[in-house]
Amino acid sequence: MKKPMSYLDSVHRDGRIWGLFICFLIVCFPLAVSVLFGAFPQWEALWKGLLATAPMYWAVGIIEIFTYIPMLGAGGAYLSFVTGNISNLKLPCALDAMERANVKANSEEGEIISTIAIAVSSIVTTVIVILGVILIVPLSPILEAPVLDPAFDQMLPALFGGLAVVFVSKNRKLSVAPIVLMLALFIFVPALNRDTVGIMVPVGVLFTLLVARIMYKKGML
């Protein structure tokens, strides 16, 4: 008799189907616009634009997959890589939810809580953006008000300040080395800034794993 599929296996099966289906839709969009308006890309500009964009973003995309999938859980990964805003929204949301629910990220409970948090976050984002698009005319002057600029500019520090208190206080010993390294790198290497922080996430992750392994082997954790 065939063994019934586990919850996790079914998440992987459904995640693949949904992921490939949405990928297909995304590719169909430019094709449909071409057909409907009888317009084709300007090949030289397309090639130039791609050369300036794709190599870097493909490299970053591949690194992000290996960095974030282990942290997001299965359901969370399939959803996050479709809706985006992983490091500034989905992952913090899942981390906070797992912390509040007191579940471990690598347990089935963690998988479920993180999926619920990320799904809700994706739905709320999508709905808010839909409402914003409908109301774009009256909302634009408010959203573009210069007085609000600094608040949106500083979203990441405001987010990670709170998140750091929770995680650093729970892992004091382990957090010292990576924080010192990252502060030193960002302060003294001028090339590191808001645009390059995404590339530094895997560096931070690998370094912290190395430190954790050494401390674990020495019985310090």
Binding site: T67, P70, M71, S87, L91, L95, K104, A105, N106, L156, P157, F160, G161, L163, A164, F167, V168, N171, L174, S175, P178, I179, L181, M182, L183, L185, F186, I187, L192, N193, R194, V197, M200, V201, V203, G204, V205, L206, F207, T208, L209, V211, A212, R213, Y216, L221
Partner: peptide, 24 residues
Amino acid sequence: KWGEILTNAMFLGMISAFLGYVFC
């Protein structure tokens, strides 16, 4: 036990990168 430390270490690694960025 290492499995639990591993995921925690990954989270901390990400958070420390963003803390570094705050000071850039």
